[in-house]
Every structure is written in structure tokens, then in C-alpha cells.
Simulated assay, not measured.
Amino acid sequence: MQSHIVSIGLANPGNPIPQENISRFMQMAHGLDSSESRKLGFVYRKSGIRQRFSALKDFNQEDPGKFAFFPNNHTLEPFPGTASRMQVFRKEAPVLANLAIQRCLVKADVLPEKVSHLILVSCTGMYAPGVEMDIIQAMGFSNNIERYAIHFMGCYAAFNAIKLADRICRSEAESNVLVVGVELCTIHFQKEYNEDNVIANALFGDGAAAVLIQSSSLEGLAIKQYQSNILIEGESEMAWSIGDFGFEMKLSKYIPELLSNGIREFRKNLETKFGISQIRQFAIHPGGKQILRKIEAAFGIGEEQNSHAHRVLEKFGNMSSVTILFVLAAILDDPGIHGDILAMGFGPGLTLETLLLEK
């Protein structure tokens, strides 16, 4: 029996912050002159992102005197270290995750005590006992619930969580497996003015998603097949490390081209595995506007076949591993979508994850 994604609950912190407001904050934080400010403003206008969410309200402030997290000055010195950023994560992540879980379980009409397995996904914060322990206590889950944590795998991590949930459901047919992703990307803002930081600061936002997966259900999105591909030649182009001032991202402007070339290289294998030439609906992780365009071009698909990914990018930005779950939630709620859906995600490695679903 196939496992099914039965329901998805979503949550974001605070109110949406317009992309132009974040651009003005970055111009100040980087100490840019008028010429560089215009260049940065152009990058933000062409990002395909209209707004994002953040656990930090400072990005919506023009007056440094009103900052709550960063120092109250234009230089942001002394710049917050990793410990202070993890304090924000420890405080905010469980609250956001619990909200997404509540929305997910209400949609599925499943009581918290019926959840048998909990899989926590995050690459923007960790501590022990972890977010999953805080969730168990707050939600009233059973004390014999099985819990797992997938950390630091980047934007494709939710795919691994869904695969794990599928295998659990196949081995234990009555399981109610809850996948919970929570990412606070913006707490890792880096103010050094370089290519990696400019790209990351222009793209990432915060969010959480909870996904209920069952094998006993015949509703929702059926999990049919999945496959992993690794592009070794891209390992230095996308990376994520822990620094003294938060987590530091390596995000090359060449990633869209690498992914495009990688898709072309693996297209034959993907055709054999999934029959992609017959698929009409896609859910591509919206890592950025150029990534979506390159992947769509490589597959020869139109933007309308991947429309929900573009809308999620516009409304939320790239929320790392959580983003694809927002795309799947939109597809799940769209009465006009039926049949096979090919979901794709990308992350450090360079890794491509693919998941074939059916609605």
C-alpha cells in the first residue's frame, strides 16, 4: 500500500516584510554608497521575491535605535555571535513548529496522541534536548513516540524526511508519521559585503511546515517513487558551515548553471525512473528565480507547470528545507491539479533529490 501525504500545516513568524524594506536594511548594514546601493536594489527587484518573513523584526526597521536583536547603531557592532543567534532559534523555533503542527493535525482530524513518529528537519539551528523534545511536551504527544532529527542537510532535507516517513509507514501500516520542518534562515545574516552574502541575504526567509504521512489513507498525495543524484563537481559551489557570527553560506552565482547541466546529465535516468516526459505538473524547490528558470528550461516545461513554486518564492522567499513543503501544500489545496507531480530539491553536495507523487 502506498503512503500518502494527508495534510500540511504552515506557519511564518510575524508579518511579511516587503523586499524593498529588507534591501534598505542591507544597504545600511553593508555601509554602501549610492552607487553600490543602486546595484543592490537592482538585485532585490529582480529576485522574484515580493516579501519574506523573519523571526527578527529588525529587518523592517530603518531606525537602528529601534533594533531589538542587532546593536542600536548603523555598523551593527558588536556583531551578534553564534550563541545569541541560537538563543533566538531555541526560543522561536518550537513556537513556530507547534503552530504548523496544530494546523496540520486539525486539517487531518488527527489527535496529537495518535502521532506515532516525529521527524524534525532543520539546518538553521540545533540544540539538545532538541526542538522535537520541546514539541513533544507542548503538543502532548505520547511519551513513547519515536523521534528522529535530520540536521544540516540544506534545502533538500525535507525529501529525506518524507522518504524516511514513507519507509516507516510501509513497515508499520498504522503509523501516523509527522514530518516537521522549521527554518530561521534570517537569524544568520552576515554583513560582510561579498557575493555569497549578497545572494543569501536577498533570498532567504523563515518558516515552518508540518506534514502528516499515513499508509492507511487513500487521500492526499500518494508517494510513488524517489531518487537521489549527487553532482560532485558542484560541491564547492554550495556549502553551509558554522562560524563565529552564525552559520555561513557559500552560494555561488554559478549554481543555476550547474543545476541545469546536472539535470541534462541525469535526464535519461530520470526518464527511465519516472517517465518525466509524461509528467505535466512539477514542484521544483524555489531556491531562486534563476534556478527555477534554468531547471524549467532543462526540462522543457512551462512556468505554468511549476506555477506554485514561483508563487511561494514571491510570497516567502527561499526558506531552505521548508520551502518545498509550502509548494506541496499549495498543490494539495489546488483542486485543478490531478495526476503525477515530480518534486525536485537541491542542496549542498551538490545534491538533487526527486520525489514522484500522485494526486
Rank of each mutant, 00 (worst) to 15 (best):
I5G: 02
G9S: 06
L10C: 05
A11Y: 01
A11H: 02
N12E: 04
G14K: 10
N15C: 07
N15Q: 15
P16F: 05
I22M: 12
S23Q: 09
S23Y: 05
M26C: 14
M28G: 02
G31H: 12
E36N: 12
R38C: 00
F42P: 00
G48W: 09
Q51V: 07
Q51G: 07
A55Q: 01
L56R: 07
L56G: 03
K57H: 06
N60F: 10
N60S: 15
H74S: 08
F79W: 02
T82E: 03
S84P: 00
M86G: 01
Q87T: 05
A93P: 09
P94L: 09
V95R: 15
L105V: 04
V115T: 09
V115Q: 03
S116I: 01
H117Y: 14
L120A: 10
L120W: 13
Y127V: 05
P129R: 09
A138S: 13
F141K: 00
N144F: 06
N144I: 03
E146I: 08
R147W: 02
Y148I: 06
I150A: 04
C155L: 04
N160Y: 04
L164R: 12
R170M: 10
E174A: 13
V177N: 03
V180C: 13
G181C: 15
Q190A: 08
Q190F: 05
Q190P: 08
E192G: 01
E192T: 12
E192V: 08
N194Y: 07
N197M: 07
N201W: 02
N201D: 03
A202L: 06
G205P: 09
A210H: 10
S216I: 00
L218T: 00
S228Q: 11
N229S: 13
E233C: 06
G234Q: 06
G234D: 01
E235A: 13
S236R: 15
S241W: 08
F245M: 01
E248K: 14
L251P: 04
L251D: 07
S260C: 14
N261A: 10
E265L: 14
E271L: 07
F274W: 12
G275N: 12
Q278G: 14
Q281K: 15
H285P: 03
K289L: 10
R293T: 01
E296F: 02
A297H: 11
A297I: 03
E303V: 14
S307I: 11
A309T: 09
E314M: 10
K315W: 02
F316K: 13
N318M: 03
N318V: 01
M319L: 14
T323D: 04
I324Y: 06
L325I: 10
P335F: 06
G336F: 11
G336T: 11
G339H: 10
G339Q: 12
D340A: 15
A343P: 06
A343M: 06
G345L: 02
G345T: 06
F346I: 05
G347A: 12
P348Y: 04
P348S: 08
L356I: 11
L357Y: 11
